[in-house]
């Protein structure tokens, strides 16, 4: 006898943003966004983040950058002009971008994302022939 009577558990939808287990604030990194002929380049300042902990995610047309920065140990502050915390920022990416070819590199606190355009969106020169 098959187990037809049992109803399948409804699939749990995607849970939103995971709850965080530590406090501290998140900062929005400064970015430059520049467009070249065949790609968009996003340059983000995320000082203090280690290369292997940076998380770049593309989902449903949204590109998100999450760069965790460890909190400093308790210390005797003399001057405190900036806060230390994770960086987080999201961008909506148009369909003219080939999501499968997005690449990222990181050096000296600067994260650079390359977003190549899809073939159809690249400018094309059409030559006019004469008969």
């Amino acid at each position: 006898m098959s187990n037809d009577t049992a109803t399948a558990k409804p699939e749990v939808g995607e849970v939103g943003v995971a709850e965080r287990t530590r406090c501290g604030c998140e900062y929005r990194p400064n970015v430059d966004i520049l467009e070249k002929v065949d790609e968009l380049v996003v340059v983000a300042d995320v000082p203090g983040a280690a290369a292997d902990s940076i998380d770049v995610d593309f989902k449903e047309g949204m590109l998100s950058i999450h760069a965790p920065v460890p909190q400093p140990e308790a210390r005797n502050d003399l001057l405190r002009e900036y806060g230390v915390g994770d960086y987080y920022r999201t961008f909506r990416v148009s369909e003219a971008i080939d999501a499968s070819k997005i690449s990222a590199e990181y050096s000296d606190g600067v994260l650079t994302l390359h977003l190549p355009k899809v073939e159809a969106a690249k400018p094309r020169k059409i030559s006019v022939g004469t008969k």
Partner: peptide, 25 residues
């Protein structure tokens, strides 16, 4: 940070003073 100067954090630990700045790139 609001005035456009690089922001600095500084602290005192035992026998040294420490100064830290964010200088990406």
């Amino acid at each position: 940070a609001r005035e456009g100067r690089p922001a600095v954090n500084g602290w005192d630990r035992d026998e040294s003073l420490f100064v830290e700045l964010e200088v990406p790139g």
